[in-house]
């Protein structure tokens, strides 16, 4: 159904034009279980792209493939920077995907360094830059000024992100002491400190109240505006998905069932069926009636 929709369009979708990430025919098998089944999609440059689907649809598996925590069984993940350099993510170890290909991520169950302060969390995120500046530690131990300057810059950047996420007042508190919503924001700030080209957020609004959710929307829109970072997010909270995303991809049982703008996806009968749980026969009925309506509109 969604394919018929896309095919009826003449012009290519805007996110197909030089996408920052192109996922092509990715499969992920765990023994006999196919978690991701022939998945292809593009993440548009500068877009906020949402990956949605019912629980167990394989969204987090896709994330883990993109960020290198899993190696896809089959398929290609192509990341292209604004300057044109391209990376094949399926061939890179996980830490290089962050360090070289500049893909940052957050986790569904927050993974902060809870015993370290907020500032330290943000400095750990700038590890590679600081490591170079400290001359692989040797110059740093001797206390040469080059490292001190680099550290000052790193602290400035950390301050910038603390400011953006509204956490400046708590910079010297341990991350584990923060309330839940603030921990979510700090995780985003930490990911942004790695200066990513693509930011992957795994359920950033989970457990947030409506006000915090709205703040998160503003933060993400701000990141897209000022940092020009493309964002790929998994989300269940439809208010976030529909309000801020430019492009929505729907997964069910590891297969893509819809791909389009939020309004298109919202009205897709298969998406409605996947979310509201319609019987298979009813899906066909709904599809047929919709087909008839579309045909009627065309003639």
């Amino acid at each position: 159904m969604s394919e018929t929709l896309t095919m009826t369009r003449d012009a290519p979708m805007p996110w197909e034009n030089r996408p920052v990430l192109k996922v092509e025919h990715v499969f992920m098998r765990f023994g006999g279980l196919i978690a991701v089944n022939d998945l292809s999609f593009s993440v548009g440059r500068g877009d906020i792209t949402a990956l949605i689907g019912p629980n167990g649809a394989g969204k987090t598996t896709v994330f883990n493939c993109i960020t290198g925590f899993y190696k896809p069984t089959q398929g290609m993940l192509r990341l292209e920077h604004a300057d044109g350099s391209t990376f094949l993510l399926e061939r890179m170890p996980d830490f290089k995907i962050s360090a070289k290909a500049k893909v940052a991520r957050t986790f569904q169950n927050i993974r902060l360094f809870s015993g370290m302060t907020l500032l330290e969390n943000l400095l750990v995120a700038q590890h590679n830059t600081l490591m170079l500046a400290s001359g692989m530690t040797i110059l740093g131990v001797l206390g040469l000024p080059g490292y001190r300057n680099a550290e000052r810059k790193a602290v400035e950047k950390a301050k910038y992100w603390l400011e953006k996420t509204g956490l400046t007042a708590r910079a010297d508190d341990p991350a584990g002491d923060l309330p839940y919503g603030a921990q979510r924001r700090l995780e985003i700030a930490r990911a942004m400190c790695t200066e990513p080209e693509l930011l992957c957020l795994d359920e950033p609004a989970a457990g947030l109240n409506p006000r915090e959710s709205a703040e998160l929307n503003a933060l993400l829109l701000g990141i897209r505006e000022t940092e020009k970072t493309s964002i790929l997010l998994i989300e269940h909270d439809m208010s976030v998905v529909m309000e801020i995303s430019d492009h929505v991809i729907v997964l069910e049982y590891g297969t893509k069932i819809a791909d389009g703008s939020p309004t298109e996806v919202r009205n897709d009968p298969r998406v409605i069926a996947a979310y509201l749980g319609v019987d298979d026969e009813e899906v066909e009925v709904v599809e047929e009636t919709l087909d008839e309506i579309i045909e009627g509109a065309a003639t």
Binding site: A99, N128, A191
Partner: peptide, 12 residues
């Protein structure tokens, strides 16, 4: 504190 988070931040 967290090895997986370390790897996600590009630390070898």
């Amino acid at each position: 504190e967290d090895e997986i988070a370390c790897r996600s931040l590009g630390i070898n």
